[in-house]
Each structure stands twice: as structure tokens, then as C-alpha cells.
Computed example of a mutant assay.
Amino acid sequence: MIRTLLLGASLLLSTLAPSAATTIGDDGLHKEDWFAITFRDVAEDIETAREQGKRLVMIFEQRGCIYCTAMHEKLLSDPEVADYIKANFMVVQYNMFGDEEVTDLDGGTLTEKTAARKWGYVFTPTIVFLPEEAPEDMTVSEAAVATMPGAFGKWTFLNMFRWVHEKGYEGEEHFQKYHARIINELREQGRLDVE
């Protein structure tokens, strides 16, 4: 009986705990060991990502954000999601209320919190997808090819990364149409019951 209770408690705790690759930083944010640590010069980060054959993604989070926690524990811990992102994107984390210095694409120097305000990002997590090459005289919010504010389920989350990687924003198929098509394909393959 006691052994069964201990096993049950252990299983419950293991489902609630962050993945082994996730830690909590001094700023209270979850840290994936594959997130890039940079000087937060956005043009430089776009170039670095391009040199790696990837795209730059910025993720705005905040301490105590339950949706950010869910993103790390349910989405970024899923090997299908994490492997796809790691293979195709360089991810840089931003603290919505942080004081780290940021250099915008227009050359302006800000803190993370003033950058979030300038760019109009008010939800956490907010995921910002940048173009393959750094444009001049634009802000991050003007240059972004897509922005995903808030938390979503696995397939919406993963499909947004796929849509950007496939440059869906350049075509005629809106993300919502793309997502619906992928969901239907997954259902036909028997990989999805509900989404």
C-alpha cells in the first residue's frame, strides 16, 4: 500500500516537474539548455542565426507566468516540438520586465522592458519570428514576419514554427488555413484525435 502511494506520488511529481533540460534562472524564467545566450543585438542575432542555417526567434517571458511554465513543461519538453525548433531556429529569451540591454534593428538601445513596450508586446509568452536578413531602419515589431502572443496547444505552436520555416507568410495560405490543413492531415494519419 505504502509502496503504491509512493509510486503514485512520484509519478505525479514527475509529470509536474520541468524537463531535465529546463532550469529556473536567477530572473525566475525557465531556461532551456538550447536557448542562445547573446548580447541581444537583434541584427547581429539575425546574422548569427542565418550563418547557422536557422531563423531568429525571440521569446518574451516573465517571472511567475503560468503560460510560460506550460510552454516549457508541455511544449518545449516534447521531443517532436523541441527537435524541430532546435534544427531550424535560434531562440533568444527576453524578460518582459528585464533590464538587460537590447539593440533594436533601427539601432536604438533599450532595456528588455522598454523594448517590449516599444514593440507592443504585452502578453507572455510572446514569440517573435524575425526575417532571414536584418532590415535597416525598422524596429523589431515592424520587421517581424509573424508574432504568436500567448500560449497554444502543441499543434498550433509547432505549426506556427513550421509555417514560418516554410515561409508561409510569403504565400497565399494564411496561417489559420495552413494549420487547419495540417490538423486534417494528422487526423487522416490517425495521429490526432482532438485539437
Rank of each mutant, 00 (worst) to 15 (best):
L7K: 11
Y169T: 03
V194I: 13
A151P: 03
H30Q: 13
D193G: 15
A134H: 09
Q62W: 11
E188G: 08
A116N: 12
V122D: 14
F175Q: 04
G168W: 04
L75M: 10
F129C: 03
D99W: 13
D137V: 04
A134S: 12
N184V: 08
I59P: 02
I127L: 10
Q176H: 13
G171M: 02
I46W: 07
L192C: 06
K167P: 02
E166R: 10
T147W: 04
G64D: 09
D27W: 09
T114R: 03
K31S: 05
L130R: 05
G25C: 09
Y169E: 02
E185C: 01
Y169W: 09
L186F: 05
E185N: 13
I183G: 00
R50T: 03
A49K: 05
G28I: 07
L158S: 01
L76E: 04
L29H: 02
K86N: 12
E47C: 00
E61S: 14
F161C: 05
V92M: 09
Y94Q: 14
S19F: 00
A116G: 12
L186Q: 11
D137P: 02
F60N: 12
A17H: 13
P79A: 09
P135K: 13
I183H: 00
M160G: 11
E47P: 00
L105P: 01
E112V: 13
V140F: 01
E80Y: 06
W155S: 06
V92G: 08
F60M: 13
F152I: 00
R55I: 01
F89E: 02
A151H: 15
L130M: 15
T156W: 05
G25E: 07
D99F: 09
K86R: 15
I127T: 15
H179A: 07
G64Y: 07
G53C: 01
L130Q: 09
K74C: 02
E142N: 01
Y67M: 03
K118Y: 11
D26C: 01
T139F: 04
R40D: 07
N184A: 14
Y94M: 10
R55L: 14
R40C: 00
D99L: 11
D99T: 14
D41I: 03
N95S: 10
L186H: 05
R187K: 15
E172Y: 00
A151M: 15
I85E: 08
